[in-house]
Design a protein around this nucleic acid. Structure first.
Lengths: 140, 140
DNA sequence: TTTATAGATGCAAATATTTTGCAATTAAAT
DNA sequence: ATTTAATTGCAAAATATTTGCATCTATAAA
């Protein structure tokens, strides 16, 4: 795990630093959107020490590079789980436990394109969020 | 216009106050998502006087009642232009001029439902945002 | 290895944003 | 007109975000 995070950083041309590993690790463990402060607190609580300002700066950079996304309704950060799907992401957000999954659906993408064009828009990117209950929350 | 804003307030069981009229009016004129501060500044610049705290409180209440929506990517507030479509809104956002249109598309809604269900989710509400260039911006 | 260096981090402090408590005001029902 | 619950303004507190600068460190070159 630690290793995969390191190579993820290198793949994106970033220095493999302790702080960045901690931030990415917090997002992986969190499995839901986390604010900068939540990332900071997760790290303090478990692995080690980091500065809140550093968390801000790291998340800003990771977002620039598309390694994390800003979750729409919560504003928190989630690790981007999709490769090669820049420009179209669908979040499935559980209103109960807060878990967020991400998926891509090419057909939905085309459908949204059509809507945009029929309104005279030239579409560039799409964002969608579906809010509801995840399987483990609604079976209970 | 002033009158329609007043009746809009009453329709939702809200007192028809000067401050609320100013806030709604600012959103109508803005024709794009505005943050609390932007609403505040619009009002100061044009119509009259209001307190920033009041703007926060009014927008919070209008959002609760579904009269305005939080725009996803910008975080600003936009007047809800649709009646009877609670739970599914598609924003068309121009990346150049910032204009935001809103529409509803029942077929898209069903499509998103299917995606959610196939991932084991029980969907409740959907949010979509299509970013691109509006007709007047891409013809130039 | 060691060294040089661009990039990353920590710390302190400045800004900006959002929330809260309370007294004064006001819309609307009687 | 009077009453009253809701709304607003003001001041201040609490949070969140950004900035500047000195120090440190991951990497690449020697």
């Amino acid at each position: 795990m630690q290793h995969s995070v390191s190579s993820l950083l290198k793949q994106h041309g970033l220095r493999d630093t302790q702080s960045r590993r901690l931030v990415l690790h917090a997002l992986v463990k969190g499995n839901k959107p986390l604010s900068q402060k939540e990332v900071y607190e997760t790290i303090k609580r478990t692995d080690g020490s980091i500065n809140l300002v550093t968390v801000y700066r790291i998340l800003e950079k990771l977002e620039e590079l598309g390694m994390v996304h800003r979750h729409l309704s919560s504003g928190g950060f989630v690790l981007c789980s999709l490769e090669g799907h820049a420009g179209h992401h669908v979040f499935l957000s559980c209103q109960d436990c807060g878990k967020v999954e991400e998926c891509a659906d090419p057909e939905l993408c085309r459908h949204e394109d059509r809507i945009a064009r029929s309104a005279g828009f030239i579409p560039k990117t799409h964002l969608s969020e579906l809010l509801g209950l995840c399987s483990s929350c609604h079976t209970r």
